[in-house]
Write a protein that binds this DNA or RNA. Structure first.
Length: 272
DNA sequence: ACTCGTGTTAGCTG
DNA sequence: TCAGCTAACACGAG
């Protein structure tokens, strides 16, 4: 599920509920989720510290950690968290109540599931868990944020034009390139292109400045709406992403194909 | 049984 | 070296 809006709900959950709690245990036994670390490395690096801040760039989160035993003092390693295709964050309170972020919106959740892939156990009895059915999520030390482009919600119109228009790639593939702009996933990309009335397979070198500016405005409005409503799946055209679906604006048939290696839906009339 | 997928990334090609 | 493309990863859902 997670695109930028879902990751933002997960980040806010961590910020509200998981900071300044002493870590007394770490389950880092899933070597695929904790790649490239081996079991025990995350435990050894984090035990005795606390999370003290949580940031987000695109779909990547990072938690700053404290010194060992000094839970208000910065100085520990940064912990990267990525939700992958199906990850969610669950934070369990000292009383055992579990809240979930990374899905549509924050809500109650089971305290333990068969899909718990990584967990921090706190001294107060609560925990922070990465729940991830498909195991494409990831938790690792020292995330390299410089490999990502600017966050999709923070990029300026000028930056956007410069990052988007270079080369000959299909515009949807470019929107999905996290090293150019961070945070746009498959559903957001379809929604942005539909709102801007741009064909997903249009080559970026064929776009005019007016197209880029419409894409920029669509990006900002789609992001704002998706964060407010709780997820990328709340977009207007997402409901029409199925066989027989019709454009919510003009009623024309929706087309389906693969662009940039991803399943893509577009309006046969307005995004020809 | 079989196909698909809201994400990333190694590896190949020109 | 780089832009662009494909396959692979893992595994549940339909």
């Amino acid at each position: 599920m997670p695109e930028l809006p879902e990751v933002e709900t997960a980040r806010r959950l961590i910020a509200d509920q998981a900071l300044h709690r002493r870590i007394v245990g770490v389950d880092d036994s899933d070597t695929f989720v904790c790649r490239p670390h081996s079991p025990g490395q995350l435990r050894d690096a984090l035990t005795g510290r606390a999370l003290i801040a949580v940031g987000r760039r695109g779909k990547t989160m990072w938690c700053e950690t404290s010194q060992v035993g000094r839970l208000d003092a910065p100085g520990g390693p940064d912990l990267g968290i990525h939700l992958g295709m199906s990850g969610r964050i669950v934070v369990v309170s000292p009383e055992g109540r579990a809240a979930e972020g990374g899905g549509p919106r924050r809500r109650d959740a089971p305290a333990r599931t068969a899909w718990d892939r990584f967990a921090l156990e706190f001294a107060d009895g609560g925990r922070l868990v990465l729940v991830d059915k498909r195991r494409l999520g990831r938790v690792w030390l020292g995330p390299d944020l410089d490999a990502l482009g600017p966050d999709a919600g923070l990029v300026t119109p000028e930056e956007f034009r410069n990052l988007i228009l270079k080369g000959t790639i299909a515009v949807k593939a470019r929107l999905l390139d996290q090293s150019k702009i961070a945070g746009i996933g498959n559903l957001l990309a379809d929604e942005i292109l539909w709102q801007a009335k741009v064909s997903p397979s249009a080559r970026v070198n064929t776009l005019r400045r007016a197209d880029a500016d419409r894409l920029y405005r669509a990006l900002q409005s789609v992001l704002r709406s998706a964060i407010a409503k709780g997820g990328a799946h709340t977009g207007d055209v997402i409901a029409a992403r199925h066989p027989g679906g019709t454009c919510p604006r003009c009623g024309a048939e929706m087309r389906h194909g693969t662009v940039g290696g991803r399943s893509t839906w577009w309006c046969s009339r307005e995004q020809a």
